[in-house]
Amino acid sequence: MKKIPLKGIVFESGEGSADHAHKMYVTAGDGQPVHAHPFTGTTSFDAGHAHSYAGTTGPAPSRVEHTHAYHAETTFNDGHTHIIHGVTGPAIPLPHGGHLHYFEGNTTVNGSVPHAHHYSGRTGEANAD
Rank of each mutant, 00 (worst) to 15 (best):
H35N: 07
D46R: 09
G41T: 02
T42M: 11
T42G: 10
A60E: 06
A54Q: 14
R63L: 13
P38C: 07
H51Q: 10
A60P: 00
P61Q: 07
A54R: 13
E65F: 12
R63M: 13
H49S: 01
A47P: 02
P59V: 08
F45L: 12
R63A: 15
A47H: 02
E65P: 14
T57L: 06
A54K: 12
P38H: 05
S52M: 14
G48Q: 15
H51R: 09
A36K: 08
G48M: 10
T56H: 13
S52D: 15
S62G: 14
F45W: 10
A36F: 02
P61R: 12
S52I: 14
G58E: 06
S44H: 05
T40S: 13
T56W: 09
T56S: 14
A47C: 12
D46G: 01
T40M: 15
Y53V: 08
A50Q: 06
P61D: 08
A50N: 09
T43W: 03
H35D: 08
E65Q: 12
G55R: 00
G48A: 06
H51T: 01
G55S: 02
G58M: 00
A60Q: 02
D46F: 12
T57R: 04
S52Y: 11
G55C: 00
H51M: 04
E65W: 11
A60L: 09
T40C: 12
A50K: 03
V64R: 15
S52V: 11
D46N: 09
A47N: 10
T40L: 15
T56K: 02
F45G: 07
T42K: 12
H51C: 06
H51A: 10
G41H: 07
P59Q: 09
A36D: 05
H51F: 07
H37S: 04
T43L: 03
H49Y: 07
A36W: 13
V64C: 13
P59S: 12
D46Y: 02
F45E: 08
A54L: 14
G58V: 00
E65R: 11
A54H: 11
A54T: 14
P61E: 13
T43S: 07
F39K: 01
T43E: 02
T57F: 05
H37I: 03
S52A: 15
A47L: 08
A50M: 08
F45S: 08
T56E: 14
V64S: 13
G41V: 04
T56L: 13
T57Y: 09
V64F: 11
S44V: 00
T57C: 14
A54F: 11
P38F: 14
P38K: 13
H37R: 04
P61S: 11
G55K: 02
T43I: 02
P38G: 09
T56N: 10
H35Q: 05
T42D: 03
H35G: 04
R63I: 15
D46C: 07
T42S: 07
P59E: 03
G58K: 02
T57M: 10
P61L: 01
F39S: 00
Y53G: 04
S44K: 00
T40D: 09
T42P: 12
D46I: 08
T43A: 00
F45N: 10
T42I: 15
